[in-house]
Each structure stands twice: as structure tokens, then as C-alpha cells.
């Protein structure tokens, strides 16, 4: 099965940097980029323009920015964790926010990990590589998707 990394991010610069770092890593994975929280929800739950998508075909890891247009990352996280079809997907809050409150909310909301995006390019690139390496190659998730109740 193809391993998909879902990046939900609105900053064009951060998207470009993340994509570049992924390419350098050379772990063959598809990266899907979505630009706001609403679109992330539509994608994950196969609604709107994603209604043709197979709901069993979920990403291996979700990298979720906190500050997003339309629906915040914390709101998206809440929806992911509240639904049996998505609640086991590892979700990492990837954010430039170092605000203590966001971090606590992220952990409360059930994120698997919380990573602050380094400002400097080299560091940023290294963070993204480590993230991919860890979550795609080392972390295991259940194969079976739980059916909607």
C-alpha cells in the first residue's frame, strides 16, 4: 500500500520547504498538500470535492499546522479523534507557534506529537526529514480501519 503523508499548511514557503526536504529524503511517498482546515476535513471524510475518494485510503501520518484558515488545526484534530474511521491516524501538530496554550490544547486534543517548525532553513529541513523517517518508517499503525458506527 502506498504511504501518503498529508500536510495541512497554508504558508506557501513552508509547503515548498517541506516538499524539498521530503524529496531529499528519498523515501518514496506521496505527499498530499491541503491549504486550510475545512479542506482537510473534506479530504479525510471524503466530502465535497473529495466525495469520490476511498475512505479506507487514509494517510500514514498527518502533519497539521495549528493556525489555518477557515477551520483551525485544533478543530481539525478534534474531528479526527472523534471519528472511528480516522481516530487512529497519527497526527503531529507542526507549527510555528510556541505558545504554551496551543501545545497543551494539542496534547489534550490527542495529538501524537507536537513539533515547532525551526525558523532557520537547515534546521527546518532536518526536522521534516526526521519526521518523515520516524513516522513513515518506524511507527506502526493498525491496518484495519474501524467501520463507522
Amino acid at each position: 500500500m502506498e504511504k501518503v503523508v498529508l500536510l495541512v499548511e497554508d504558508s506557501e514557503d513552508d509547503i515548498k520547504l517541506t516538499q524539498m526536504a521530503f524529496k531529499e529524503n528519498n523515501i518514496a511517498n506521496k505527499m498530499v498538500v491541503l491549504n486550510d482546515g475545512e479542506e482537510a476535513v473534506e479530504y479525510l471524510f471524503c466530502q465535497g470535492k473529495y466525495r469520490e475518494r476511498d475512505i479506507n485510503d487514509q494517510p500514514t501520518i498527518i502533519l497539521l499546522d495549528i493556525k489555518l484558515p477557515k477551520l483551525s488545526g485544533l478543530e481539525v484534530l478534534k474531528k479526527i479523534r472523534a471519528d472511528n474511521r480516522t481516530k487512529y491516524i497519527p497526527t503531529v501538530m507542526l507549527t510555528s507557534s510556541t505558545e504554551e496554550e496551543d501545545m497543551i490544547e494539542g496534547y489534550k486534543g490527542g495529538c501524537n506529537s507536537y513539533v515547532c517548525k525551526p525558523v532557520e532553513y537547515e534546521q527546518f529541513s532536518q526536522a521534516v526529514k526526521q519526521l518523515e523517517l520516524y513516522w513513515v518508517l518506524n511507527n506502526r499503525t493498525p491496518n484495519k480501519r474501524i467501520e463507522e458506527e
Partner: peptide, 19 residues
């Protein structure tokens, strides 16, 4: 190699609340 990735990821990149 696994413990290298794991240790580095959780001790370095992952953020814990200050509390």
C-alpha cells in the same frame, strides 16, 4: 539505528509543555 531515530525524534524534535 531504530533507537537513534526514536531517541532523537522524541527527545529533540518533540515538544513538551513547559509544565
Amino acid at each position: 539505528s531504530l533507537m537513534h531515530d526514536l531517541g532523537f525524534y522524541w527527545l529533540s524534535w518533540n515538544n513538551l509543555p513547559w509544565v
